[in-house]
């Protein structure tokens, strides 16, 4: 996509720098996001992949300052968006950003929509709020948005309530809400995990098409490496709150460099894979954030871990242009 490469040449749209988010728990302070830095260029789709507890969702919520405090706290870092540090904005200023230039799509469309308001009111709300237009104009825009996300008979569906929509239709409503103010960045947290596979394909294709049309950037948070391969330009792999590897998608899948990334790829069955062989699982258990080892978070499960890996934390280093890994091994 030419406009992407062009945009990537300038200052990135979003720069996350050294972000640290912690939570107070019964078992002490847990570092959910541990010195995370990455960029998103205008119009680019970046996937953040990881398993539960990897910090992928907390990273996304931190960008929009949606971390409940207490128990959570963004301890340090910068989130530079269009030249401003979102972490330094006052509450009114960050509210003006949310739903306007940065929109969010959540996993559970049913619990993210207000059951007591009509769909038209919910889709129109960001327009009314951020664009300061009348409700009549906002409803017009809502109707336009609902037809854009392929909800049939959008005009009459405006007055329906979320429970009258199916799961896939509700997620389309969420996308319509996200697109309402032509955001420069959409953050989608597992947007299709709750949906059936044929509906997942519809929703992701729609999201991709609409972000391309509006040249919005997209941060796609997922655990599904297939979804990443189909939709993302670049990938950030997280483990135990840290970034372990990041690269353009093609490069990452062709040449995974971190043992965790390699382990993940070997452990998932593929629709076109070899059926005779056993899967190669990653042995051991996912990391316990309250009890991380002093060195590399993956060291206890890594076949190639050395003493150094167990004691010292590997920094994120360039292995080639735009490809970084946090691993001491030379592989």
């Amino acid at each position: 996509m030419p406009q992407h490469t062009q945009a990537a040449a300038g200052t990135p749209l979003l720069q996350v720098r050294d972000l640290v988010t912690t939570f107070r728990t019964e078992r002490g302070k847990v570092v959910a996001v541990d010195h995370v830095s990455f960029d998103v260029a205008a119009g680019e789709t970046v996937a953040i992949v990881g398993e539960s507890g990897s910090g992928k969702s907390v990273t996304a919520l931190s960008i929009l300052r949606l971390i409940p405090n207490p128990p959570g706290r963004i301890e340090q870092g910068e989130v530079l968006f269009d030249g401003r540090d979102l972490l330094k904005l006052d509450d009114a200023a960050i509210r003006a950003v949310r739903g306007d230039s940065i929109a969010m799509i959540f996993q559970e469309p049913m619990s993210s929509l207000n059951p007591a308001l009509t769909v038209g009111m919910q889709v129109g709300e960001p327009v009314n709020l951020h664009r300061k237009v009348s409700w009549a104009r906002a409803f017009e825009r809502a109707k336009e948005l609902l037809s854009k996300v392929a909800i049939p008979d959008a005009g009459s569906r405006l007055n329906s309530y979320p429970h009258q929509y199916s799961g896939g239709m509700r997620q389309r409503v969420m996308i319509a809400m996200a697109l309402a103010c032509n955001p420069k960045l959409i953050v989608a947290d597992e947007p299709t995990t709750a949906l059936d596979v044929t509906v997942q394909a519809q929703i992701l294709a729609l999201l991709k098409q609409l972000t391309r049309e509006s040249s919005s950037a997209l941060i796609l948070i997922t655990h599904d490496l297939g979804v990443v391969a189909r939709y993302a330009d670049r990938v950030v792999v997280m483990y135990g709150g840290r970034i372990v590897e990041t690269a353009p998608s093609l490069d990452l899948y062709a040449r995974p460099r971190h043992p965790y990334t390699r382990g993940l790829m070997a452990s998932i069955p593929r629709l076109d894979g070899d059926t005779g062989s056993r899967l190669v699982p990653i042995e051991g258990q996912p990391p316990d954030l309250a009890n991380l080892p002093p060195g590399c978070a993956f060291a206890p499960r890594c076949q190639q871990a050395t003493d150094r890996c167990r004691q010292e934390r590997p920094p994120l280093q360039a292995v080639s242009d735009r490809h970084y890994k946090a691993c001491f091994l030379d592989a």
């Binding site: 596979v197 044929t198 997942q200 394909a201 519809q202 294709a205 599904d224 490496l225 297939g226 979804v227 990443v228 391969a229 189909r230 939709y231 993302a232 998608s249 093609l250 899948y253 062709a254 790829m265 998932i268 593929r270 629709l271 076109d272």
Partner: peptide, 17 residues
């Protein structure tokens, strides 16, 4: 509808949704 974890392959796979 099932994506295959291989971006090079996905780029050429016909997408019949």
């Amino acid at each position: 509808a099932v994506p295959i974890p291989d971006p090079a392959l996905e780029a050429t796979r016909p997408q019949q949704i």
